[in-house]
């Protein structure tokens, strides 16, 4: 049946090309009908009656239009059309659908002359009783399964394809990093973590905003403190999802024995409503006056060693409170989330 071919081809194309766009799916439907151009009883045959009538008079059904040679011809035409229109991948849906429809017909009792002009009929299994006949109950099963594949294909295309969905379902770090890299420049990226705190192994599952990716780990925050996966939290599963639109600005500050307070205040006042984190290494005059927040589960974002102060995603407000009246030399990178 024409509809079975259409659904099989559309489902296959959506899965193989990872698309849910109407144009390639429409081309898939068209490509799936082209094999039946060799009979005047088909829909496409009635539309293109002179062509189908001419073919019908000269060739058996399921021969010249059901072969790989026809697919190659279609592929060449699609390639040229796609190249001219700048949409090669989209136009590849046409030959792909054609070959899927022809291959599907191999599972019918009559088979197809897949290798025309070689006069052999390609069939799925040698026993004809194990093949389906057109219009029989088995075809409705095929139609139902193909419809499910089409729905799954469209859904998977919306979530990045089958492979991405498998990675996401399993919480693989590769996918989390890929999702982060794909979205971080334009939006917030959140981590849905299933895991435990490293100190007392109590449940740490929850939703955290990702500040940065470091290797295969993430610097994250719950709005109160900063944490690092693998260091503060043992992660069993980590899924990343894009959140609201957000702009991310990285600004470098070089300090040459300067008073830190006005520099940091200026940074705060010039970015109202933004969340700012500082990372870098500076040398200060009075390190003994700095009181780092220690203990707890959070990442140590400020460490003092002699005159050296190391900042690691240290919140700006906290830095202003801790580093006021200090004169500093060094460089700091400010991560500004707007």
């Amino acid at each position: 049946m024409a509809i079975t071919h259409a659904v099989i081809a559309a489902g296959g194309v959506s899965l193989l090309l990872g698309t849910a766009d109407p144009l390639p799916l429409g081309l898939a439907v068209l490509g799936s009908q082209l094999p039946d151009l060799d009979t005047t009883t088909s829909v496409i045959g009635q539309i293109a009656f002179p062509i189908s009538s001419w073919i019908e008079d000269r060739f058996p059904h399921r021969s010249i239009t059901h072969c790989l040679l026809a697919t190659v011809t279609l592929a060449a035409l699609s390639l040229v059309t796609g190249y001219v229109l700048g949409e090669i991948k989209v136009w590849m849906a046409l030959p792909l659908a054609h070959v899927l429809a022809c291959f599907a017909d191999c599972f019918t009792r009559q088979g197809v002359q897949l290798f025309w002009p070689i006069p052999v009929w390609a069939v799925s299994v040698a026993n004809p009783r194990r093949r389906i006949y057109t219009g029989g109950p088995a075809e409705y099963w095929v139609l139902a399964i193909a419809t499910a594949v089409l729905v799954a294909g469209i859904w998977l295309a919306g979530v990045g394809g089958p492979q991405a969905q498998v990675s996401r379902s399993l919480g693989l770090r590769d996918d989390a990093i890929a999702t982060y890299n794909r979205n971080v420049s334009t939006s917030e990226v959140w981590a849905e973590i299933t895991g435990v705190w490293i100190d007392d192994r109590t449940d740490a599952s929850g939703k955290y905003l990702i500040l940065e990716n470091q290797g295969s780990e993430f610097i994250i925050t719950d709005g109160k403190s900063i944490y690092q996966t693998g260091k503060n939290i043992i992660v069993n599963k980590l899924l990343t999802k894009a959140g609201e639109a957000s702009q991310r600005i990285v600004k470098s500050l070089t300090l040459n024995d300067q008073d830190l307070s006005p520099v940091l205040q200026n940074l705060l006042s010039s970015n109202p409503g933004s969340t700012i984190y500082l990372t870098g290494s500076i040398a200060v005059d009075f390190p003994e006056e700095i009181q780092p927040v220690s203990g707890g589960r959070q990442l140590q974002t400020l460490t003092v060693s002699g005159e050296a102060v190391e900042l690691n995603y240290h919140p700006l407000e906290l830095a202003i409170a801790q580093l006021s009246d200090q004169w500093a030399t060094g460089s700091i990178t400010a991560l500004i989330l707007q």
């Binding site: 009792r109 088979g111 006069p119 009929w121 069939v123 799925s124 299994v125 040698a126 004809p128 029989g136």
Partner: peptide, 18 residues
């Protein structure tokens, strides 16, 4: 002929291709 199976032997099984 509605449910007839071909009786000729000019066929090739394409399951290995699958």
């Amino acid at each position: 002929n509605q449910k007839a199976s071909p009786q000729h032997t000019q066929y090739v099984v394409v399951m290995p291709l699958v």
